[in-house]
């Protein structure tokens, strides 16, 4: 136990910075995933066939390619198209990958909203877009908070793939690896890295539970 503690104390600045970087990666990917996921979900349920098809292609594309391959595509692939640094490449890959799952989850939430809600909304003179924005999506979000939470937690864990890939982003996992090499103590190094991820996922779980309670639709 003593050596665990020693590794932690000696490399606290690195772990702190790794933790902070993972937080930033997660936060940026989260924004991309939710934003794009919502738009794609709206496409998937739009009355226009063309939009539906774009949504379907998008979802199938990003769901059916391994995350690591996506990261490589963004980072190495077509440099003249994606002339972007490791941060943008990494968060885009993780964010867009997750957005496909979020879109599908939101879509299932949309279908859980009763047809009567849409009738009521349209009867007030709302356009389809207003109906989606003001009536359907807010309810969908609320009903899919638990599965969305699972996706966010998966995304936090998947962020380690960014650290393990060629991006050279010194996130928690990467910090663990560097520390392991420096101290020759892999147990302790990865223990502290794991604890960092645990703190993030447990916090996310807590926030999700809280949101679920606060925003629950009483029926």
């Amino acid at each position: 136990m003593g050596e665990f503690w020693e590794v932690f104390q000696r490399h606290l600045p690195e772990f702190r910075s790794g933790f902070y970087i993972t937080c930033r990666l997660v936060a940026m990917s989260f924004v991309i995933a939710m934003g794009v996921g919502t738009i794609i979900a709206a496409f998937r349920v739009a009355p226009a066939r063309a939009l539906q098809r774009i949504g379907t292609v998008y979802v199938e594309f990003f769901r059916n390619i391994p995350l690591l391959v996506l990261i490589f595509i963004f980072f190495f692939g077509f440099p003249e198209v994606f002339n972007i640094g490791p941060w943008v490449a990494g968060t885009l890959a993780l964010g867009l990958y997750t957005s496909a799952y979020i879109a599908e989850t939101l879509r299932s939430g949309v279908f859980a909203v009763g047809k009567g809600q849409i009738d009521a909304s349209l009867s007030l003179g709302f356009t389809y877009r207003q109906t989606l924005q003001k009536v359907v999506l807010p309810q969908s979000f609320r009903t899919v908070i638990p599965p969305l939470g699972n996706l966010i937690i998966a995304m936090i864990k998947n962020s380690a793939i960014l650290g393990a890939s060629a991006l050279a982003i010194p996130d928690l996992l990467k910090t663990g690896r560097i520390t392991a090499a420096l101290t020759a103590n892999a147990h302790a190094s990865f223990f502290w890295a794991a604890l960092g991820y645990l703190i993030l996922t447990v916090t996310a779980t807590f926030i999700v539970r809280h949101l679920e309670k606060r925003l629950a639709i009483r029926r």
Partner: peptide, 12 residues
């Protein structure tokens, strides 16, 4: 205005 059998108020 339209009023429905099942009310259809916005529950959120």
């Amino acid at each position: 205005g339209m009023v429905f059998q099942s009310f259809n108020l916005f529950p959120h």
